[in-house]
Design a protein around this nucleic acid. Sequence first.
DNA 1: CGGGGCTGTGACGGCCTTGTGATAAAGCTG
DNA 2: CAGCTTTATCACAAGGCCGTCACAGCCCCG
Lengths: 229, 229
Amino acid sequence: MKALIVDDDRTLADLLSFTLRRAGFETVQAFDAPGAVSTFQQDSYDIILLDVNLPGGNQLQNGFDVCRRIRETSNVPIILLTVRDDEEDIIKGLNLGADDYILKPFSPRQLVARVQTVLRRAKEGQALMPAAFSARDIHFDPNRHEFTRGGAEPVLLTRLESRLMEILFLNANQVLPTATLIDHVWGPGGATPDMLRQLIRRLRQKVESDPGNPQMIQNHPGIGYRFIP
Amino acid sequence: MKALIVDDDRTLADLLSFTLRRAGFETVQAFDAPGAVSTFQQDSYDIILLDVNLPGGNQLQNGFDVCRRIRETSNVPIILLTVRDDEEDIIKGLNLGADDYILKPFSPRQLVARVQTVLRRAKEGQALMPAAFSARDIHFDPNRHEFTRGGAEPVLLTRLESRLMEILFLNANQVLPTATLIDHVWGPGGATPDMLRQLIRRLRQKVESDPGNPQMIQNHPGIGYRFIP
DNA sequence: CGGGGCTGTGACGGCCTTGTGATAAAGCTG
DNA sequence: CAGCTTTATCACAAGGCCGTCACAGCCCCG
């Protein structure tokens, strides 16, 4: 497995290299946009780690350009490295064909986990990408189980919480029957309404600003719940 | 599968295109009302995504006109893109023959899910329940259990109230026998006429402007009730 | 004119649903 | 194995949906 690491911060690039080598990768580094493109063209890689905030002038200088250029000739998996404040960068990058993103700062474990996830997905040929939900000031990424509200810290959801949030968000503004929710979270008939109530409760505690007066996740007696972004 | 996307906001139109293409659609874009109509006439489409808030002057300029023009010659599924505050737009659009609507903002996955739902419904010859009922200035969405009248606040209906409204609206202007109503709400023989009277009463309290003098839900002695939008 | 059936109205209460807290079991990490 | 997180189970209180009942008004008919 061979990885191309593109980052102008050489310390960070070294750290990335070190981490990935420990995980069994070969690594090659590039420190600016032209270098990245030419390096990429000289050899084939299994995955690209790409900092979007490459410094520089006006043409073929930042990470997006690199992403576009690579995508013109290859569909190698690309993971973007971005900072939290820039949701737009993420969307822009994903639209240019990147496969996933990682928010800086990140731990080595996160990095390896993401890389392996992306590689597994790529191998299975399922390029599921627009997996993130967002509406107004909230944002939810089911792949990494993160729920973000406004500029606040992302909240980590558990597996079941994430699946619940997924179907709620997917059918925003609609009342979803209890059975439908159970089917999607646990599988058909895989749970009792009791368990769903507890799950709803825990999810509210995590995502509602006032869990005592839930605004986003509303109940409709005898029917089910509804999510209002 | 071919989709026509009509939105004056080109960024949004691009995003919609991108999303649907990833989901396996071909997409064509139009950015104003005349363009939408002429594009539609040049080719056949499986579904139309239509922003109702197209800007422009006074004739054949907004989304409603497009909806009407398309409906004059075709019954291709149409999904409206609207904002939450504009219940009236939704009512108007559905009256003109749109099949469903989705509230902005929405995420790519939500959009795909809704498009597929509408297509499935269309393919099955709409043997299923319509996505929403609308007539004159009233609007009923069985998925949300909401009843809206004019520009007023939506009224939340309970489970039984919603089922009753469903069959009433589905057979508007017809006299429905008591037994028919009971069958649909409770299941065959699942209730006494007493219970139906109470339910009718509670529904009237919620949706009639003067519950003392019911206009919409009228009684026909010895037979049943009739719903007049 | 009186009675019976049907309907609208109001009140009451039971029971189901929901929210909440506590606690135990299960799964994962180191 | 210890310790933590996650999930399931149980008990209980509050609230509201909805079923039941009683009564008044109305129309029809004898």
